[in-house]
Design a protein around this nucleic acid. Sequence first.
DNA 1: AAAAAAGTTGACGGATCGTCATTCTAGGTG
DNA 2: CACCTAGAATGACGATCCGTCAACTTTTTT
Lengths: 257, 257
Amino acid sequence: MLPQPPMQNSRSLARQLREQALLKLAQQILRQDGFAGLTMDRLTALSDVSKGTLYNHFSSKEDVLTALSVDSLERLQHLFQLALNFNGHSRERALALHYAYHRFSAAEPTLFLCLLTAATPGVMEKSSPERLLRRQQLETELLTMCQTVLSAALADGSLTLPAGAAVEQYSFINWALAFGCNALFAPLRQLGLFAGLQAGQINIQSINLLFDGMGWLPLSADWDYQASWHRIGLIFSQQLMSDPLIHPTLNQTQEPA
Amino acid sequence: MLPQPPMQNSRSLARQLREQALLKLAQQILRQDGFAGLTMDRLTALSDVSKGTLYNHFSSKEDVLTALSVDSLERLQHLFQLALNFNGHSRERALALHYAYHRFSAAEPTLFLCLLTAATPGVMEKSSPERLLRRQQLETELLTMCQTVLSAALADGSLTLPAGAAVEQYSFINWALAFGCNALFAPLRQLGLFAGLQAGQINIQSINLLFDGMGWLPLSADWDYQASWHRIGLIFSQQLMSDPLIHPTLNQTQEPA
DNA sequence: AAAAAAGTTGACGGATCGTCATTCTAGGTG
DNA sequence: CACCTAGAATGACGATCCGTCAACTTTTTT
């Protein structure tokens, strides 16, 4: 039924598995030693493949980062799927999408930073075109999921677009706000700026303001979205957030710079 | 009258001038050859100082990026000052702040990307503490300027905080939205995603939604903020946006990788 | 004028990236 | 079973780049 699955299954399957293992390892290094600790030599040394093979998978070090960001987007897509299944009205489901994004950035700060750095020109310049394309495609799909909720809201009448506004504009604004909130919290966590503000609190408050501004019913005055936020959290807690690590022993390495 | 200006004026003045020239040159390279093209060797070769002297000014390559981001923040501060002087009601002045931010990111995409990359852990890890401190200080000042407008709005009654909300939260949300909008537009400009959306249009629309959600009077239904946006633009156009380039001849270099 | 302090230089060590000639391996052929 | 070949894997190597430091020059002090 599928269009054309590559015939050489044993080959390409092993290839895929190895690529996943390499990415997992890269992620591990990133978590442990920061971005400066991630070098191709180190990645080779800790893996069971050689440099040449590594470069058979990734065209450059930056390509590894882009690959990690693709990985992140796929996990995000999975979380978004959960959010869309939330049992509630449309504005709650939109809130669930924001929750998923927030939850991911909090649970996987390293990967979220990958998302940030992968959008940096220095990284994009040196990544393989195929992977960049894949990333763009995933981003489009995620955006489509957001627009799904908006369309549903328009259909059931809880949201009405002003004249001259398009669904894409609204989804863009949502994305921008979510991105801004989570991105700003990443570096600000260690800095003192905005100290004392809870990430979750700020998030839900921002979204409420935006949705109220959009006139999305029921307004925050008429509904306890704090409670919704909490209920949404439950369906994500049940689901496993992070997959088990493949290489738990990473101790025999020299200490980072 | 000044507290204690360093006595060795001729020395430190020359030093400051040279540092400015170096930063200008770095910016030039960045514009021309992208982030990959900026290397310390190249920066030295194109300047009239040696490597050692360069490292007398900047502790590392990343420190150069942080320095550029500090530079950007200073220019942003200048633009914010202009915005605060805009003759209008408080919500218009807030809009002017957003305009300044947007205008800067559009006019100086390279520097705006510096702001992004300088917040990256890989860069922060290797920048000099003094410069990082300076950056944080500037960010605080910018944020204070935002809060000034919010406080004024609270004072004149055009804005009222709901119970349990603080001014910092509101300024954070504003900052996050502005950052998200402009950051998302940066890579998307070259990509096809969101094609056909005008950055300025999206920006003003987002802000209107947020401010309406905050209940900031006059609401967008009762005031033509499109016209305000245009009027605000005038005071920025009069002011010079970009300073003249010091090294217009940058042609004798080898072509980038 | 001599000495001390401050500033500048560019060659060098170390680290990392990405390549490529060589080696290995799986699967087919006589 | 011996041989062959296409494709994959290897790791040594050249190139690049970062940041340092001993030697040298300029400025200031004595």
